[in-house]
Design a protein around this nucleic acid. Structure first.
Lengths: 229, 229
DNA sequence: GGATGTGAAGTAGTTCACAGCC
DNA sequence: GGCTGTGAACTACTTCACATCC
């Protein structure tokens, strides 16, 4: 079994939204300017060759000798990321984090629409957050393609099971625990404490003050600025 | 330039806290039991060979024919992750997200101690959150080794510059923008909207309902459960 | 001239497969 | 017997370097 042959490598997938944010900004500010892979790479924190390789997966959208048109970039990335289809998403667990997420302006990233919120706390059930009413999780979960788990870790697996039973096929899990799902359900993890631990390690070892500080999260290498530049 | 030779591969580094959480749980529940790489791998969502390779970086701490002692695992991972040295961390930007983070019980992950909070909003400055007073960012930042940026993207670069000037060498950035720092400063990114976009893509293409749903965040592959198991 | 797009080379991480030890 | 620890093979991604085209 050679693996499900994802059409786009995951690190590339993670960088596309970054390129797009940059292109949006350029298109807004300097309409008509052309972005080359070196500039785009510097702003995105990525090597020029990597930028070109990434964008070449979307087809030949650059102009040799010049670069990439921001407007084209924006629409092509929209296309490949499927921004034309907005997916419904539910958030389970309306504690501090759940509330912070749904109130955050960039959370949905243009690909998703918030359709339901769930909690088990009677004092929260029935209230509205970001314009969406909070339902009682015990009363069942409506079918949604994507869901975000922001519950305490003890109940995360149970919630995941409920979601899967209700037809969810993509889960973003903020609970600090690995969840088990059937084949065919996509899960991604966001774990703040692990991120801090990695930073602490890198600060204490090698990659610290003398090392170079070039790290990778989401496959993104931040740009480096030498003392005099 | 062959790269700064980090002693531990980053994906391994990201998995160690996961193994440790599992080991802590086993040690608490069934004192004396021995964990083998297959079990540990299933719970962590990682192939057995990868578990063994990861743990072998910490030295030979398993017993051939048996497995790994949870208590040993916990203390060895503590050691390599540097849990003996607790680093001071500051959080900049006390909006919904900043507040949610500092109020979250597992945020500090045992490696950090929250020593300062900053914001620019007069109505927040002077209050205390999670027992730590919020200071005015305009009044300057005290020197801390690690910092977390939870500001809006427009001011994230400026805040990063202030932090670096104050001596910070590790930054966890939640603002949806790439920041530029001098060589020697470590930066990691957490971007919720990118995570959702990746999930949406994978749901729509290949890796969706029929594909396999095996994803990678933080280098962690979640375990898969076949319909009957 | 100058920047893209891409084979080829290089690098990092995963997985196999088995020797070694309990 | 069973499971670890690890060289060797494999796979995935990045980077080089250059032919190609505007």
């Amino acid at each position: 079994m050679p693996g499900p042959r994802r059409s786009l490598p995951e690190p590339t997938l993670a960088r596309l939204p970054v390129y797009q944010r940059i292109a949006v900004e350029f298109d807004r500010r300097d309409r008509g300017i052309i972005l080359d892979s070196t500039t785009l790479g510097r702003l995105a924190g990525v090597a020029p060759a990597t930028v070109r390789r990434d964008l070449s997966y979307l087809g030949a959208l650059g102009t040799r000798g010049a670069g990439y048109d921001p407007a084209t970039l924006v629409s092509q990335i929209d296309e490949v990321l499927g921004r034309s289809t907005v997916l419904d998403v539910a958030v389970i667990g309306m504690g501090n984090l759940g509330r912070a997420l749904v109130n955050s302006s960039n959370f949905l990233g243009g690909v998703a629409s918030l359709t339901a919120l769930y909690d088990s706390d009677p004092s929260v059930i029935g209230t509205s957050i970001a314009g969406v009413p909070v339902s009682d999780i015990a009363a069942g979960i409506a079918s949604v393609p994507m869901a975000v788990i922001c519950t305490p870790p003890e109940v995360a697996q149970e919630v995941a099971d409920q979601l899967v039973a209700a037809g969810t096929h993509a889960i973003l899990n903020f609970a600090p625990i690995v969840i088990t799902v059937p084949l065919g359900v996509a899960v991604r993890y966001v774990d703040f404490s692990i991120e801090l631990q990695i930073l602490a390690y890198q600060l204490m070892n090698g990659t610290g003050p003398l090392g170079g500080g070039v790290l990778h999260t989401l496959g993104i290498t931040p740009p480096v600025r030498r003392p005099g530049s």
